[in-house]
């Protein structure tokens, strides 16, 4: 893993973000503002695509809220009980899905379980959103929002292809 030393700008390097949409936003932000000088003696930033706290917390909260909304709609309970059930079941279903999928991919002797689990869970959510987008209740708004974000992410990925050199330049400016 690459490490950038004493370069505050490294905090917003697009290579520290996982999703294309976040990388594109980071690229835009890096040309608009420069981070405040650090109030510590020295700093070191790791260049890893999962390094951003804001991105990961935002995606986790968005995913959990979307899943909870879907569960409220799908659970055969009256609304207050469905909400209670969804609050418990949404995080619980994530805990169950990860070892199950991870175990299955391990048995299939796949090497990168994290990517496979991530792709599988996102695929299930896209399929579920596509199904719920056709519903006549307000759940379709949540589903359309989810699909819109996924589409924007795909578009950002395409936009980033010709901008790869610009990202490399930013990294080189930080000495990476």
């Amino acid at each position: 893993m690459r490490v950038v030393r004493d370069c505050p700008q490294a905090q917003y390097l697009p290579s520290r973000y996982h999703f294309a949409l976040c990388r594109l936003l980071a690229l835009a932000a890096s040309s608009l503002r420069s981070p405040a000088p650090p109030r510590v003696d020295r700093i070191a930033h790791a260049l890893d695509r999962d390094q951003s706290a804001v991105e990961n917390y935002a995606v986790a909260i968005w995913f959990l809220l979307t899943l909870a909304c879907y569960l409220i709609f799908l659970l055969p309970l009256r609304l207050p009980f469905a909400i209670l059930g969804a609050i418990v079941m949404a995080p619980l279903s994530v805990q169950i899905a990860i070892p199950l999928l991870g175990g299955a991919f391990t048995l299939m002797r796949m090497k990168n379980n994290m990517t496979m689990v991530s792709t599988s869970i996102m695929s299930v959510m896209i399929a579920l959103s596509s199904y719920l987008a056709t519903a006549s209740t307000p759940i379709r708004l949540v589903a359309w929002f989810f699909l819109a974000i996924v589409t924007l992410n795909a578009m950002a990925w395409l936009i980033l292809i010709p901008l790869r050199n610009r990202i490399h330049e930013l990294e080189e400016r930080c000495g990476a």
Partner: peptide, 18 residues
């Protein structure tokens, strides 16, 4: 160890919170 090897980073906050 199993969790670290299988959990996508964007799901970590949910897993750790739980």
């Amino acid at each position: 160890r199993i969790g670290v090897l299988n959990t996508p980073p964007w799901l970590e906050p949910i897993v750790i919170g739980w």
